[in-house]
Nucleic acid binder design. Structure first.
Lengths: 249, 249
DNA sequence: AAAAAAAATGCACAAACACGCAAAAAAACG
DNA sequence: CGTTTTTTTGCGTGTTTGTGCATTTTTTTT
């Protein structure tokens, strides 16, 4: 058995059970414990594992590119993501906006889903790049460091050439009369073109932000097909949207 | 038995059982182990297999293989980055290719530098997004998960509209006669357009890869202005490049 | 504090490797 | 066809890599 084979096997094993013991490995691979120790040492120097006495542990070093602590309402957003992920089917072409809710959604897409996802968010692209069968297409442009998304008129044009089955749009502003709104003008233009490129538009919004209005208009409410929130769809707060035939999830 | 026959057989065998041993192959094909080694070396230079001590493994198309390979020579790459960072001045428009050397470079750009950087590499964009005064422009496209860069013809066009002062290009293949070469065709086209968009082209290459040739040509050596390596510029290995008036750093 | 387990250290040795060279084979050429 | 050139191959040399073992040091357990 070659050294690299052992390395791969050790890493696979680690991924599966989060820890390995030198003793077990040396038994199962029929090499001396010394060799296993050397293997672990080498893998550690490559930052692939976390070596400890007697074995090694899985190293969780997903580079979180922006501060997750600063995100509000994480629990609510996770609930929304769990509901929204059911809308994703294999074969779809999907557009995702750059919201933290979409980041949660990206984390929980099942491995067997095979789809194409367009995004302009750095953290979402990083997250999706770990997925085995999602094709990721990053919409480039000038990077807004605060939000970790690309902006700029240059990115609107490429979006016109996309035709997507479904668009997942995170928002802090949705209102029956004013429709979808956004504090940042550039982002409002990008969201607008994303929606126009999509057959079906899903807005994800925590319940506390429903019926709130921001400065710049994205699209009227008639352009939206569905709203996903963390609360029960039959709540009274949705009555206005239901009257307009929106699907509430 | 002809060389190409063996090559094909080796690749088939690899696909089937994920590993081959030089010893076995030399027995079964009745050639010396040296010949098998040469075969494997050639296949590796074409990026078709992953050569290891004692044989070869199937080239993995997973993210991990990128991690393991790129971590190699990290000390050399840091030295190169330290030399290269001196070329960066405030006010410049810079293009960075998606190499691990450029990632090291991105990490050490002084905070007081104020510049615009174009890149198509996800990790480099993430790194630069933490810099206080660098404007980052991400060149979008289909994400190649293995190398964490965007590729695709769609990204070449936008590059034509850029005009940059300096281009930092990482490479594993530079040679006096064959110029800059690349194993991946799509990447070779992108690198080509990046170089054509730049006034001054700096190639960063660890000394062990100097005079190595990959499959696809990027540009002839005359398009290159400077080479940065981790070793002393007066080393004999650079004489051919010096004759062509390249700056060696 | 003593005993046991794991790790580091140094050494030996076989297997795999790189390099140069020359023979053999294949290709190119008139 | 013969001859020249290029490519491919095998072998001898010395070097590097991977592995196991004995010994000492460090860490963990009792």
């Amino acid at each position: 058995m070659l050294k690299q084979e052992r390395h791969k096997l050790i890493l696979d094993r680690l991924k599966l059970s989060k820890k390995v013991l030198s003793k077990n490995l040396s038994d199962e691979l029929s090499v001396s414990e010394d060799t296993i120790r050397r293997d672990l040492k080498e893998l550690e120097s490559k930052d692939l594992i976390y070596k400890v006495h007697g074995g090694a542990l899985l190293k969780e070093n997903r580079v979180r590119s922006y501060d997750e602590r600063s995100i509000a309402d994480v629990e609510e957003k996770k609930k929304i993501a769990i509901k929204a992920v059911k809308l994703i089917k294999s074969g779809q072409v999907i557009i995702m906006s750059g919201s933290s809710t979409n980041l949660e959604l990206a984390k929980i897409i099942p491995p067997e889903i095979n789809a194409t996802i367009y995004t302009y968010s750095l953290p979402i692209a990083v997250e999706l790049s770990h997925h085995p069968s999602i094709e990721v297409i990053f919409i480039g442009g000038k990077l807004n460091k605060e939000a970790q998304v690309t902006v700029g008129i240059d990115i609107v044009n490429p979006i016109y050439n996309i035709s997507a089955d479904i668009c997942f749009m995170g928002t802090d502003g949705i209102d029956v009369n004013r429709g979808l709104t956004e504090p940042n003008w550039e982002v409002s233009r990008i969201k607008n073109s994303m929606i126009r490129a999509s057959n079906y538009v899903v807005v994800m919004c925590v319940s506390s932000r429903i019926n709130s209005v921001k400065r710049h208009s994205v699209v009227p409410i008639t352009e939206i097909d569905a709203i996903v929130s963390e609360i029960d769809p039959s709540e009274a707060i949705f009555s206005g949207f239901r009257d307009l035939n929106l699907t509430i999830i």
